[in-house]
Amino acid sequence: MFQYEKALQYPVKIARPNARLAKMIMSQLGGPNGELGASMRYLNQRYTMPLRELQGLLTDIGTEELSHMEMVSAIVYQLTKGMTPEQLEAQGFADYFVDHTTGIYPVSASGIPFSAATFQSVGDAVADLNEDLAAEQKARTTYDNILRLADDPDVRDVIRFLREREIVHYQRFGEGLRLIQDHLSRYTDYPDNPYATNPSFDPPVPRPQPRPRKK
């Protein structure tokens, strides 16, 4: 069950509206490396993880991504609030405005609506965790690119916070992958190649133990 806390994970207080910037930031809501995809990826992958610790990690990171989705939406909301249609059009926002006014709708910076095809859940712990590691780095790259283009200090401060979290998540997923590797090397029949089975689906096979020597 999820419960709502009436606060952002990190405060968003944007002084100057900027629709052009809003359109770029929007990609981290509905784009291919965005926070909506991140939360859906982890919260859907967690059920079949073979270790409870990993189910916990995916639950906790997936929940944090929901908070990040809310922060990105708050940036877009504040960046487009109180502008006239003329100002929005002058800042390249007319095509979004026609369909959504200034409502929040998950699309990428190039206008493609959010798609579940941007993430995977293949029901295999090693494959899913490797996807998660790549996803955190892709999100970090996107935040880096936003920082290359954004000059508003209020926006940059929040984006830097979100970028840091991608790096922390990458570290935690790396540790999670190691937990699974340790688990596999204890239980699998193929100690030299722990990637030959699906640890989320195939039952664990005890590793053959050397026979105790007779005295």
């Binding site: 606060a7 994970q9 405060p11 610790e53 916990g56 990690l57 944090e64 935690r172 540790e175």
Partner: peptide, 18 residues
Amino acid sequence: TQSRAFAMRDLALYLDTH
């Protein structure tokens, strides 16, 4: 308040793997 909430969440992720 939120600085403490953040400390909890960050430590939670660390504790998940340690």
